[in-house]
């Protein structure tokens, strides 16, 4: 059914820290690597070694510059993927029942056996999270690594989305955002996590942590404004005395 569940037991999602993301694209690359053999496999590439390589990705890392008046400009690296919205418009528009939101954990998935490739869900997503696979004629999207997070063949610490595991900067966090005690909820509260385009009312589950205030001046980190000369003693003190005469 493409009607949304009225509530979900869990709201599994990601918290992405725009302060620490270094824009290395490791999350996107490992996502591609895992998912091209995962739930929605394959993640088709067109012309991969040609002049205009293109293909299906679940995660894309943008970079932006933010001009902030007289303060120094800010560089933001921005990974963009499915936000597993509570009010997922991509699901309700689906005419076939291929798109669905799971009542148990809130993950939004596509059953590619039912998808007719009408692309309407990709129009309904404000975030551009869904990408059409031209070879297979069906829509594909982030699965929140549904084939890892419950996978008992993996070690418990590996039961997380690959983008989170692979992030070298610790900028990605995975957990239940429905549980106020969870690490991701605590982090979101402490760092004032944001909903993207909240004004559209999709109620995204994933949160983005805005960059923290930059420490621009030496005083910001408790360091002295200028270095002062150290009083020397011994041989250097004697030399200083002689030369000062």
């Amino acid at each position: 059914m493409t009607s949304l569940p009225s509530t979900t037991n869990k709201k599994l999602g990601l918290v992405i820290d725009l302060d620490t993301c270094v824009g290395c694209h490791a999350c996107a690359t490992n996502c591609k690597e895992w998912n091209t053999g995962g739930h929605s496999a394959p993640l088709t590439d067109y012309d991969p070694y040609g002049k205009k390589p293109d293909g299906v990705w679940f995660n894309r890392v943008h970079s932006y510059e933010v001009k902030r008046g007289n303060r120094p400009n800010l560089t933001i690296n921005f990974p963009r993927s499915c936000l597993h919205c509570e009010n997922a418009g991509c699901v309700t528009v689906c005419p076939t029942g291929a798109s669905y939101k799971r009542a148990e954990d809130g993950i939004v998935l596509v059953n590619t056996d039912k998808c007719i490739g009408c692309k309407l869900c990709s129009w309904a997503c404000p975030y551009g999270a869904r990408e059409f696979d031209e070879d297979e004629g069906v829509m594909k999207k982030c699965t929140l690594c549904v084939d890892r997070i419950y996978n008992e063949n993996l070690e418990p610490e590996d039961r997380q989305p690959v983008c989170v595991i692979t992030c070298p900067a610790g900028a990605r966090h995975f957990g239940d955002l429905n549980d106020p005690e969870s690490a991701v909820s605590q982090l979101t509260a402490a760092r004032h996590g944001r909903d993207l385009m909240g004004e559209l009312g999709y109620k995204p589950t994933n949160k983005y942590l805005p960059p923290r205030a930059r420490k621009v001046d030496a005083a910001d980190v408790g360091a002295p404004e200028e270095l002062e000369a150290v009083e020397a003693d011994g041989f250097l003190g004697w030399l200083d005395n002689v030369l000062s005469k």
């Binding site: 725009l18 943008h62 970079s63 932006y64 510059e65 933010v66 001009k67 902030r68 008046g69 800010l74 560089t75 933001i76 921005f78 944001r194 909903d195 993207l196 983005y208 805005p210 960059p211």
Partner: peptide
């Protein structure tokens, strides 16, 4: 982007 203040442009 969830960035409140500043002029954002694509880098």
């Amino acid at each position: 982007l969830g960035i409140d203040a500043g002029d954002v442009s694509v880098l």
